[in-house]
Design a protein around this nucleic acid. Structure first.
Length: 738
RNA sequence: UGAGGCGUCGUCUAACGGCAGGACCGCGGACUUUGGAUCCGCCGAUGAAGGUUCGAAUCCUUCCGCCUCAACCA
């Protein structure tokens, strides 16, 4: 059951690369860092499974860490429920920690920052600080306390800790840059005063660290290597790194990575909205089976395995995406299919009297719990008799085309039992059918029975079946994106909980243990509620219906999302050549570099072409002057290419080498063996070698898959090391392929 | 509009300059004592334009669209 395959996503790639490079001494430590101020939901499940999965897949460790840096919102109850939920979902962690475990260490680090002039105590009120932060397009302004002596700040900071100031009187701020383009870096707050009782440290502290300061330190203190969080923390990463760089060195030095949090259709996942649903009693509590909380899902009957399969199904990436809730439902059905024994229950009974069955005679049929897989073993007695109950929905007076259930004069199979025919409809005062009369075909049961097509219907014995509490749950919201509504509460699905007061169960179900799961034939998967079940009388929660390919009301238009409208292409063709020229002209560093290259003898057009199309990509954001390859060196490289000393393929390899390690172009060219080869015989030999190694592909190409030419050409090019001209290689290749 | 991030079948996600792959959904078929399951098949995508390259989803440029950031929350 452990997800055997190594997860495949960009984070796994990063970790694999780190391991391959020997970083962090081969350690992998991740962490799941909830704040104990709410219940975990399916979005957290994605994160938990990611962090636990990655650590396990790479032989690492995962920590469960409570990020308890804000005593005013956090409570012990939540640390209990969170631990229970995590354990239920993912099992045990290697270490349980609390941010508050590190308060003393964090404080010492803060004193160090102050002493080194990297932090100061600001004695301004909150509103002023906020105002001074500026805005996206307006730089901030410095606090008048920004340059107060370190000794004074240190004294003040110590007195903050000592409790000499009231809440809000002053804060500790990092001294970074009030004009920083990233607003988060404009002298962020590190500590604030909170005279509040902390659930773990009690009244020992009255100053508490802010997330941006505390989090990187927690990671570093714990030896976390890969600190994985969601996309909205991307801007915070710069501060994360600042804190660690200011207080290092660290081994391992934690790195923060971000992935897209889960958004799921037909539900809400924000803490605030979930709290509101509970607070306003729109649901029965955090563990209401309609809630996306882990507690709710668990009580709905969802299994950890289904959640794991779901997580594998949706993957991990940086795209903001809205996951179709159908994927959760798919994972759920797939899991339950293999673990839920089959039983008989009728939700809305319609009596059926079999007139040719002796009154009072009851036959105890022996039905396997696993009809399709008798080898799994197990069965139970199910009473059959003259008076039965079938599902109201399984009878139609005027059956539509394709109807495979009961109708006047029609015959169906009673699941696990005999075939019956409907002879007569008994009507109520309004003419509506209230009961059916029919006949049973006694020869229709058993291995020798004639096989006839038609439908199968579920049933129970009228007198021997038992009533039971049944809750039919459906999606909590009626629209796919409640968050997009003006008032998400208006989008609540009024039918998300329905009861089936007349429901009847086969007798064996009375013994079902709370927490057990059954498939009620043709109805869905049901979970015996651990809270409301009574001995001998389980209460049933419908986890999920069976997939139904019949009753679907032909794709109601509201449920289908309109295809994304494609904007019309812009009218005027923007001259790309022109914009690239702009780039060369407007960026002084780039144009200076280019000038140097030209001064070193490179032809201007090819120099700018190589610069724009290749060098910029290779540089990966590093400013040109910082490259090991000087402008002049680049110019000599371009001259080499223009002189035909190296093919364009070889030139790319050469350039990459120069950008990575510097050196003199001509010398590196020789050292790498990239000099252009014009010997046709040598090329032909290389092509032959390449083809010999590509046997299957060659076969497929000859069999008609001409698109494989690219693959073969690529292999041939690689064989020559890029020293031969592509046109020559291509020609040789074509000749040899015939 | 400052900074950062993201655009691949209806949905989610692969492809790391060389065969646009998989899954969900949908559709069709086989089988069926569950209109379930199972099996088989089909449908269907690189936001746009230009450039570099023998070859571009991938590299470069511009444009378009979406998301995040201006709590003494995390």
């Amino acid at each position: 059951m452990p997800s055997s395959a190594r997860p495949s996503n960009f984070l796994a790639d990063i970790i694999a690369a780190d391991l391959a490079a020997g970083r962090n001494g081969g350690r992998v430590v991740t962490r799941f860092p909830p704040e104990p101020n709410g219940f975990l939901h399916v979005g957290h499940a994605k994160s938990i499974l990611l962090n636990f999965g990655l650590a396990r897949a790479f032989g690492g460790k995962v920590h469960l860490r409570f990020d308890d840096t804000n005593p005013t919102t956090e409570e012990v109850e939540y640390v209990e429920s969170i631990q229970a939920d995590v354990r239920w979902l993912a099992g045990d962690w290697a270490r349980l920690t609390y941010a508050s475990d590190f308060f003393e260490d964090m404080y010492r680090c803060a004193e160090r920052l102050v002493s080194e002039g990297k932090a100061y105590v600001d004695s301004q009120p909150q509103e002023v600080i906020r105002e001074q932060r500026g805005s996206f397009d307006r730089p901030g302004t410095a606090s008048p306390f920004r340059d107060r002596p370190a000794a004074e700040s240190l004294d003040l900071f110590r007195r903050m800790r000592a409790g000499e100031f009231a809440d809000g009187a002053c804060v500790l701020r990092a001294r970074i840059d009030m004009a920083h383009p990233n607003v988060i870096m404009r002298d962020p707050l590190l500590y604030r005063i909170r005279h509040a009782h902390h659930h773990r440290t009690g009244d020992r502290w009255c100053i508490y660290p802010m997330y941006d300061y505390a989090h990187p330190l927690e990671d570093a203190f714990e030896g976390v290597t890969h600190s994985i969080c969601t996309l909205e923390f991307e801007s915070n990463r710069e501060l994360y790194d600042w804190v660690l760089d200011a207080l290092g060195p660290w081994d391992p030095r934690p790195r923060q990575y971000e992935f897209a949090r889960l958004a799921l259709g037909y539900t809400v996942l924000s803490k605030r909205k979930l709290l509101q649903l509970v607070g306003e009693k729109r649901v029965s509590g955090w563990d209401d089976p309609r809630m996306p909380t882990l507690a709710g899902l668990r009580r709905r009957g969802v299994t950890p395995e289904a959640l794991r399969d779901f997580a594998d199904l949706i993957g991990v990436a940086k795209n903001n995406s809205l996951v179709d809730i159908g994927k959760l439902e798919f994972a759920l059905r797939a899991d339950l299919e293999g673990r839920a024994p089959r039983a008989l229950a009728v939700l809305r009974p319609l009596p059926l009297e079999l007139t040719n069955w002796p009154a009072g005679r009851v036959e105890e049929l022996t039905l396997p719990w696993w009809p399709g897989e008798p080898e799994r073993g197990g069965s139970r007695p199910v009473p059959f008799g003259r008076d039965l109950l079938i599902e109201r929905e399984d009878f139609a007076e005027e059956p539509p085309p394709g109807w495979r259930r009961l109708a006047p004069g029609r015959e169906v199979r009673l699941a696990g039992a005999y075939r019956v025919r409907c002879d007569e409809v008994v009507r109520g005062p309004g003419g509506e059918p209230v009961a059916l009369r029919g006949t049973v075909d006694l020869a229709s049961l058993g291995p020798d029975a004639e096989k006839r097509g038609g439908g199968t219907v579920h049933w129970v014995h009228a007198g021997r079946s038992l009533p039971a509490e049944v809750r039919l749950y459906d999606r909590l919201f009626a629209v796919e994106q409640p968050d997009a509504e003006a008032d998400f509460l208006q989008a609540l699905n009024p039918g998300s909980l329905q009861r089936a007061p007349g429901a009847r169960m086969e007798p064996a179900l009375a013994a079902a243990a709370p927490g057990s799961r059954y498939q009620f034939l043709r109805l869905g998967y049901f979970f015996a509620d651990p809270v409301d079940s009574r001995p001998g009388s389980p209460a049933w929660n419908r986890t999920i219906t069976l997939k139904d390919t019949w009753a679907r009301p032909a794709a109601p238009p509201g449920l289908r999302r309109e295809p994304r409208a494609r904007p019309a292409p812009p009218a005027g063709p923007a001259s790309a050549g022109r914009s690239q020229a702009d780039l060369l002209a407007t960026d002084p560093a780039v144009s200076a570099y280019l000038q140097e290259a030209v001064a070193a003898g490179a032809a201007e057009p090819s120099a700018s072409r190589w610069l724009v199309n290749e060098l910029l990509g290779l540089a990966r954001g590093t400013p040109l002057p910082a490259l090991p390859l000087s402008g002049a060196g680049f110019g000599r490289f371009v001259s080499l290419v223009d002189a035909g000393k190296v093919t364009s393929a070889g030139a790319k390899t050469l350039l990459a080498d120069l950008v990575a390690g510097g050196g003199e172009p001509a010398a590196r060219l020789a050292a790498l063996g990239l000099a252009r080869v014009d010997d046709r015989a040598a090329v032909a030999a290389a092509v032959a070698r390449a083809l010999a190694a590509q046997g299957p592909q060659v076969e497929r190409y000859r069999a008609g898959e001409k698109k494989l030419l690219g693959v073969l050409l690529g292999a041939a090019m690689r064989e020559t090391g890029g020293t031969a001209d592509a046109a020559v290689v291509r020609q040789a290749l074509l000749e040899q392929l015939g």
